[in-house]
Design a protein around this nucleic acid. Structure first.
Lengths: 114, 114
DNA sequence: CCGTATCCGAGTAGATACTG
DNA sequence: CAGTATCTACTCGGATACGG
């Protein structure tokens, strides 16, 4: 089932995907969740500079788009855990070549071997 | 040589790359130039809804980042041609898995075979 | 601990008109 | 044809304070 907030407004797969990961912190969230489940407070510490409001908003968008799963344990003190859905995991994999390009051409890190 | 407008401010290759393609029309410009050299007017027609000002601005950013090459023929009437640099071409390739993901999960187009 | 409410500022994009 | 100039509109993200 298709996701995204601008149904029918895309010209190609790339800008459709861009719409999903559009947001200052989204790829960083993906990155952080790629290593496993994280709690809200952990994510906040992993993303230096993000405010609770913005982090919560971006997490909700990712959740609405089916990229992250939100598990609320309804305990006191509160505990909420975020993790990637299978779709989110695949998105993360699809992002890898882009990460490699960025590392090489933007960060200037040449690959070790050729 | 590294490019990008926020040197040293990146956490990983992905958000470094995101900084380069950040802009409403950039991936569409990449897409259009992927098929060959285009003139300004052609790009404008290929990107329905873009204004001259915004198109010019985004092209200049891509040029500054070493993604597109701008060839001004200094003729009358004016002729300016845009094309991808080698780096831009590689960026376009790095974007392909993301495009495939978007096609499949956002646009809902399943791959033909498995 | 995990958020929401409110207000605000900055940057991005759009419309329109004009120029070399 | 290929832009620039000006003005405006809007959305995103940030700061701070408060709530369950």
């Amino acid at each position: 089932m298709p996701v995204g907030r601008r149904p029918g407004a895309y010209h190609c797969g790339t800008d459709a995907a861009m719409d999903i990961i559009d947001g200052k912190w989204k790829v960083l969230i993906l990155w952080a969740l790629g290593e496993g489940t994280r709690r809200f407070g952990e994510l906040r510490r992993l993303l230096p500079g993000v405010t609770e409001k913005v982090l919560a908003a971006q997490l909700r968008e990712l959740e609405a788009d089916g990229i992250v799963h939100r598990e609320d344990y309804a305990e006191v003190p509160p505990r909420v855990e975020y993790s990637l859905t299978e779709m989110g995991d695949q998105l993360n994999e699809a992002l890898e070549p882009l990460a490699a390009w960025g590392k090489r051409h933007v960060l200037g890190v040449e690959p070790a071997a050729r």
